[in-house]
Amino acid sequence: MTYLMLFWNFFQIGLFSIGGGYAAIPLIQNKIVEISGYLTLREFADLITIAEMTPGPIAINSSTFVGMRVAGIGGAVAATVGFVTAPCIIVIILARFYFKYRSLSVMQGVLTGLRPAVVALIASAGLKILKFALWGEGGAAFNIKDINYISFGLFALGLIVLRKFKPNPVFIIGGAGILGILVYAIKPLF
C-alpha cells in the first residue's frame, strides 16, 4: 500500500513538473511535506542540498531519497519509477509525431524558432552555474574583487583544454574535482 501511494504521488509530480528539474521542487514540497507528511521541512531542505551535490536530475534524486526514507529500497524503486512513467509516455508520443511530421513546413518553422531558444536557455543555466562557482551563494553581481581565484583558474584551465584538445568532458569535470581537493587541501598550509 505504501509502495502504491509513493508511486501515485510521484506519478503526479512527474506529470505536472513542466519546465525541468527546479519546476518539480514546489510540487514535491507540496505533496511530500504538506499533504502526505512523508518528510519534515528540515529533511526536505537537506534533500535539496543533497540533490544539488550529487549527480543526476534533482527530481530523480528527490524521488529516490523520499522513497528510501519512507519505505527502504522498495519505496525508492516505487517513487522513482512513478516519477519517470508519465514523462516517458508523453515524450515517446511526441517523438513519434516528430519523426512523422518533421518535414512539414509549420513543424519546420516551429523548430527553427526553438533551436536558437535552446542555445539561449543553456547559456542562461551555464551562466548561473559559473556565477555560483566563482562567487558562491550570495554571488553579489560580477565583482572582480570577490572572485574565487581557485575556481576561476579551474574554469579557465578547463575551457582551454576543452577547446584545444576536445577531450571527453567527463575527464574535465572529474579532473576539476580532483584538483579541487588538492588545492583546497594545500591552501591552509600557506
Binding site: L134, L154, I173, G177, I178, G180, V183
Partner: peptide, 18 residues
C-alpha cells in the same frame, strides 16, 4: 572541496558547448 572544483569544471564544459 571536490564539489567546488567540479562546479568550475562543469561551467567550463557548458561554456564550451554554448
Amino acid at each position: 572541496a571536490m564539489l567546488k572544483g567540479m562546479q568550475a569544471g562543469i561551467a567550463a564544459v557548458i561554456a564550451d558547448a554554448v
